[in-house]
Amino acid sequence: MAESDARTPRERYRAQVRDEIKQHAWEQIATAGASALSLNAIAKRMGVSGPALYRYYANRDELITELVRDAYRSLADTFRERGGAGADLAGLAHALRGWALDDPQRYLLVYGTPVPGYHAPEDTTRIAGEIMAVLLDACAACAAAAPSVAATALDDHLGDHRDWAGDHPAPSSVLRHALTVWTRLHGVLSLELAGHFAGMGFDPARLYAAEVDALTGR
């Protein structure tokens, strides 16, 4: 039996309008980029006045925050589902690429060029931390199955600079591996989605797969 919606008709209507506003926002971002996002332009597309739209989002930054929050939550849910299903580090890496290619604008909003004048609130950082926690779990499992290696200078540094890892108990070698995985995979994805591989004559999927193999010791 479907779960009932306990919201009032007014609350459901408000949620529907907010969702419609976000859909128009994504279309506008795809056309002109997040920095050009305009509530007034969205109001015009929806056939309502600017002041009417401001009843749903107080300003551009509040709307961007909602989009950023949705994007991070989508990736966190994707990682959690894959991690809960037993996906290893390689599985998470390929899930990341699938998520990014499924909606490039969503990826670029959170991992591309920052929107000028916009600062994400603390709760989006918390959601991003959920993503990193799943990655750290996968890297820890990967390390447990691999031969031990000597600590590096970066390991020593990360031992004292691990705020980004939250309360995850991973040793500094796992922190280093997670950062290496994260930066290298995002490097390939960012270049691919920005079109920098166009015309180079190779398949970016093969480059990404090779990076995954190298990072997982395959």
Rank of each mutant, 00 (worst) to 15 (best):
S4R: 10
R7V: 08
R7F: 06
T8E: 06
T8N: 05
T8K: 09
E11A: 15
Q16R: 11
V17K: 02
R18W: 01
Q28D: 04
G33T: 02
A36T: 03
M46C: 00
M46L: 03
M46N: 00
G47P: 05
S49E: 06
S49I: 01
P51M: 01
L53N: 00
A58L: 08
I64E: 04
I64M: 08
T65C: 05
E66V: 11
V68L: 14
D70A: 15
A71K: 11
Y72W: 13
R73F: 08
R73Q: 15
S74N: 10
A76H: 04
D77P: 06
F79H: 02
R82C: 12
R82W: 11
A85V: 07
A87K: 06
D88M: 09
G91F: 11
A93S: 13
A93N: 06
L96D: 03
R97Y: 04
R97M: 08
W99D: 02
A100K: 05
L101R: 15
Y107A: 12
V110S: 13
G112I: 14
T113C: 07
P116H: 04
H119M: 05
H119S: 13
D123F: 05
R126K: 08
I127P: 02
M132P: 05
A133R: 13
A141N: 02
A141P: 00
A143P: 01
P147Y: 09
A151G: 11
A153T: 15
L154R: 14
H161V: 08
D163V: 15
D167T: 15
A170P: 07
S173L: 12
S173G: 12
H177I: 08
A178L: 02
W182G: 07
R184N: 14
G187F: 12
L189D: 05
L191C: 11
E192C: 01
L193H: 01
G199E: 07
M200V: 09
F202G: 04
F202W: 09
D203S: 09
D203N: 14
P204V: 05
L207Q: 03
A209R: 12
A210L: 13
E211R: 07
V212N: 00
D213A: 14
L215Y: 06
